[in-house]
């Protein structure tokens, strides 16, 4: 039996602005309360730790890179995006109300020592290389490493 630590593991599958925002807010809150925080980014979630450059090697990979642009500034909300208008409106409204923007939330999480871990298999499939990720992203790993973290954690979330 593994002893639970004061630790939280988040699996971030979604690449939508609202869901990524929730993930970073939860991570910040937990890290601020002294918890060790692991964020495991898989599939669309990788966009939350991408630098935002065009990615891909093959024709399909490059197409995906264009249609699925990464980076916290490029991602839109899961509903009402309306071809980018929703993203613009939400960003403006959040600014009006003084909500901390996504890039600053991510910076705060990094400053509090949150671990940002990419999924190796998703990176392979989507043709995203380590140089396409922000420098704070750690070495890509697989499901076994994520489960080891989750097993030791007292809180696990899948977003």
């Amino acid at each position: 039996m593994i002893e639970k630590k004061n630790k939280m593991t988040l699996v971030v599958l979604s690449g939508d602005m609202d869901k990524v925002m929730a993930a970073y807010i939860i991570a910040n809150g937990a890290a601020a309360a002294g918890m060790e925080v692991i964020m495991f980014f898989t599939f669309w979630g990788l966009k939350a730790i991408q630098r935002g450059n065009l990615t891909g090697k093959s024709i399909f990979g490059r197409m995906l890179g264009v249609m699925n642009r990464g980076g916290v500034d490029a991602i839109g909300p899961s509903r009402l995006n309306m071809g980018g208008m929703g993203r613009w409106m939400f960003k403006l409204m959040m600014k009006m109300h003084g909500v901390t923007p996504l890039n600053e939330l991510r910076e705060a999480a990094i400053a509090l020592g949150v671990h940002l871990i990419p999924c190796q298999m998703s990176m392979d499939v989507m043709e995203i290389s380590c140089s396409d990720l922000i420098p704070e992203a750690e070495e890509p790993v697989g499901v076994a490493v994520m489960l080891e973290h989750a097993n030791e954690s007292s809180i696990q979330y899948f977003i």
């Binding site: 807010i25 910040n28 003084g98």
Partner: peptide, 8 residues
């Protein structure tokens, strides 16, 4: 400042 920044 709004959530989560005061706590951060």
């Amino acid at each position: 400042l709004l959530c989560p920044m005061p706590v951060v």
